[in-house]
């Protein structure tokens, strides 16, 4: 047996396999793109502002004009939020969606914001009706990393008639929710909605849009 030839075949197998793996990896990764980053707009040396929206469908926002694979799913328009470190983040959320009761009324509270409050259509509140929730914006801390960042804000449901046209969709006048929180050092955090808005058959409303990345969930990167 020719040793060098065998070695050549061995190396070729490794390279071919590695190549196949890389190709497969890229194919899979490109199949589920992370949406383009939504950057926090700096308003002063210590503050910046971030604007989000929650829609009852996916026609508007980062899923494309036709709504992507699931045009009827509820969505936050962006799943990839980028904010600066050690800054006050002033968030405005336009909430266009209806809703109902929380599974766990715990999430009717405003938690982790500056002052423990939010401004809901001009009024400062610390909690809202747990039976009238559209979504929540819940940003979780990741224990073990030595960093604490927990923010949870309820977004009351909106039952007004659709009167506004955005892109191809008709939406009601939105509920406007404003709140602020402070970031620490760099890191990536996960956020998602804790209102069961994802329609599953029997269990809990956490299926479909709630169980698919990029609709009712995303990341917040502190840079």
């Amino acid at each position: 047996m020719n040793g060098s030839k065998s070695l050549g075949i061995a190396l070729a197998s490794v390279l071919l396999g590695g190549g196949a793996l890389a190709l497969a990896g890229f194919a899979l990764a490109s199949d589920t793109p992370h949406q383009a980053a939504l950057n926090c707009v700096r308003t002063s040396a210590t503050a910046c502002s971030l604007q989000l929206s929650t829609y009852p469908d996916s026609l508007e926002g980062a899923h494309g004009k036709t709504g992507g694979a699931h045009p009827t799913w509820v969505t936050y328009a962006n799943d990839n939020l980028v904010v600066p470190e050690n800054t006050t983040i002033n968030v405005t959320i336009h909430q266009y969606d209806g809703g109902g009761s929380l599974n766990d009324p715990f999430f009717d509270q405003v938690m982790g914001t500056i002052g423990g409050t939010m401004v809901y259509n001009g009024k400062t509140v610390s909690h809202v009706d747990p039976n009238n929730i559209g979504h929540t914006f819940t940003l979780r801390n990741i224990p073990g990393n030595g960093k604490t960042l927990f923010v949870s804000v309820p977004l009351p449901a909106d039952y007004r008639n659709p009167t506004i046209t955005i892109g191809t969709g008709q939406y009601p006048k939105p509920n406007i929710i404003k709140f602020s929180f402070k970031t620490g050092g760099p890191g990536t955090y996960e956020w998602n909605c804790e209102y069961p808005c994802g329609d599953a058959r029997v269990s809990s409303g956490f299926g479909y849009a709630m169980s698919s990345f990029g609709y009712m969930s995303g990341t917040l990167t502190v840079k």
């Binding site: 793996l21 497969a24 990764a29 589920t32 990345f213």
Partner: peptide, 22 residues
């Protein structure tokens, strides 16, 4: 190949190679 994709994702903390759904 799937095992290698899993280990590639777990090479460091955080989601880098693929997101949690994939």
């Amino acid at each position: 190949l799937l095992a290698m994709a899993i280990r590639t994702e777990l090479i460091m903390p955080g989601n880098h190679f693929v997101n949690q759904q994939v």
